[in-house]
């Protein structure tokens, strides 16, 4: 029972990734895409969590954590890029 539920949840997460991907591709503005990518990251994270429950293993916990960090850093970098035009600013404007 719970196994079926988990698989359904996994399918739904995959579906939501597919839907968000549409936004990434279509997304009229850059911020749309950035948010969509962030959502994909979170969805991926959740999907991995469910998979690890299905497989009954703790091996994916690092992956989940890394993904959480990466999604955060990625979104920050992207927004900084959209706002400032660069990701890493040089020291030269001291």
């Amino acid at each position: 029972m719970i196994h079926t539920l988990l698989l359904v949840a996994l399918a739904l997460f995959s579906l939501s990734i597919a839907i968000t991907l549409y936004r990434v591709i279509k997304g009229p503005t850059m911020p749309d895409r950035a948010i969509a990518l962030d959502t994909i990251g979170v969805n991926l994270l959740s999907a991995i969590a469910i998979v690890s429950i299905v497989l009954q293993t703790k091996a994916y916990l690092e992956a989940i954590l890394i993904l959480g960090i990466l999604a955060f850093i990625g979104t920050i970098a992207f927004t900084k890029y959209i706002e400032r035009g660069v990701v890493i600013e040089r020291k030269s404007d001291r």
Partner: peptide, 16 residues
């Protein structure tokens, strides 16, 4: 994600 569902946590980590 494929690495995840095919039981390759290290690969998935690195790939991400």
């Amino acid at each position: 994600l494929f690495f995840v569902i095919f039981n390759a946590p290290d690969l998935a980590l690195t790939q991400l």
